[in-house]
Design a binder for these strands. Structure first.
Length: 122
DNA sequence: TAAATGACTTAGG
DNA sequence: CCCTAAGCCATTT
């Protein structure tokens, strides 16, 4: 299974009102240190259905700047709408909102299936 | 096959 | 809290 696919599947497991960092997802996907590559996955992923992309933020608890100027604003708005609180300086407490998955929630990463062309996000 | 790219991170000032 | 400098890395060029 590709790194990209693993990351996308992980993002889908992030509960509403919780967040995960790029580095965290990379590690869960089995590629610790690939935070940057993780960001690339989201940047190059558009209009994927059922993909809560807004729940992925950086290690500082802040939404990353990137893409057009509106994206960060939308991201924060979406998160606040589901309960995530941001401080005046634009940071949220990871200690409180970070998603911490149980091992049995990641079984799907063990699939040795070949990856179909693209979004085989089952 | 080598070089360039960032929705990243961490360590220091 | 803001900013910089360096690593890091799967993808893209």
């Amino acid at each position: 299974m590709s790194f990209r696919l693993r990351v996308l599947r992980l993002v889908r497991r992030i509960p509403r009102g919780r967040v995960a960092t790029y580095g965290q997802l990379a590690a869960l996907a089995g590629h610790p240190g690939a935070a940057r590559a993780c960001g690339r996955v989201l940047r190059t992923t558009h209009d994927e259905p059922e993909l809560p992309w807004q729940r992925v933020i950086n290690s500082q608890g802040r939404v990353s700047t990137g893409g057009d100027a509106q994206r960060p604003l939308l991201q924060r708005t979406l998160l606040e709408a589901e309960g995530v609180v941001f401080s005046r300086s634009g940071r949220c407490a990871l200690k409180r909102f970070r998603w911490e998955p149980q091992e049995d929630e990641l079984c799907f990463l063990d699939d040795e299936e070949d990856e179909e062309d693209e979004d085989d996000l089952a």
